[in-house]
Write a protein that binds this DNA or RNA. Structure first.
Length: 255
DNA sequence: ATGGCCTGCAACGCAGGA
């Protein structure tokens, strides 16, 4: 089973890239973030023609998450239970017996911002929910844009990022809490090249210069981690015309 | 000079992202 995640930064703009990518990679489940599309406008037909069903939770202008799958997606859940939130950041569904959750973590804006406090609250709620989910789903995968670079090796230039969001200790501790629940960062289950990132700023030719962060992750429950055969970031779409600023991440499971 | 971009909305400049 192949799982993937991609922050598309507008599904409308990125649909051609997405359809092309699905055709070439054929994931069994694909998590999307920042669809920026209300549900009425979700491109269900175009995806169906490409062989994918979709469940989604969108809103106008901002956020929005989805799960695409080749097989049926059942037990669809929206949001984090007991964490009321207008912002559409979380959707879950069961695909081929695997509980798949697509998450778009808050950005945080800056360390002083109210949005940063919200980010930490959101992470605490996510962790507390996932601890329950792990008890009920032995096959659990949480994929998405976590907006945290877990370690310095996930940052092109840690000095330049000091004092910035994505790398602050409270954010990293919030992310580590997910790992302490028993979830594994699939990318780190394998030897990886140095300086592998999943996001590069649109400005400054950052992608060409390799100035990136690894903030898109695939977290696996112990049973899935034991069956994970590979996890890679596909940088290719970031080099296309009018790209998303994020690259897709893929995990291969032997189920 | 790690600056100088991109998206959606609804008006041509914001907010928000990372």
């Amino acid at each position: 089973m192949r799982l993937a995640t991609w922050n598309v930064n507008s599904l409308k703009v990125r649909l051609p890239h997405l359809l092309d990518w699905l055709g070439h990679n054929r994931p069994d489940a694909m998590c999307l973030q920042e669809t920026k599309t209300v549900d009425e406008n979700f491109p269900t037909e175009a995806l169906r023609a490409a062989g994918y069903r979709a469940v989604f939770s969108g809103q106008k202008t901002y956020n929005g998450v989805a799960i695409l799958s080749r097989a049926d997606a059942t037990e669809v859940s929206i949001g984090i239970p007991d964490f009321p939130d207008e912002l559409k950041r979380v959707i879950g569904a069961t695909v081929n017996g695997v509980r798949v959750i697509s998450v778009y973590a808050p950005n945080g804006q800056s360390l002083e911002s109210d949005k940063y406090a919200y980010k930490l609250r959101w992470y605490a709620a996510l962790a507390s929910w996932l601890s329950v989910e792990l008890q009920t789903h032995r096959r659990l995968a949480v994929l998405g844009d976590f907006n945290v670079a877990p370690e310095d090796r996930d940052v092109h230039d840690p000095k330049r990022w000091e004092g910035e969001i994505h790398v602050s200790e409270p954010e990293r501790a919030a992310f580590r809490k997910l790992l302490q629940l028993g979830l594994a960062d699939a990318f780190r289950l394998f030897p990886q090249p140095e300086k592998e990132f999943s996001w590069w700023d649109y400005r400054l030719n950052a992608f060409q210069r390799g100035w990136g962060l690894r903030i898109d992750e695939i977290l696996l429950s112990p049973e899935l981690a034991a069956r994970c055969a590979a996890c890679v970031i596909d940088k290719r779409p970031r080099g296309l015309e009018r790209p998303s600023d994020h690259a897709p991440v893929i995990a291969e499971l032997r189920l």
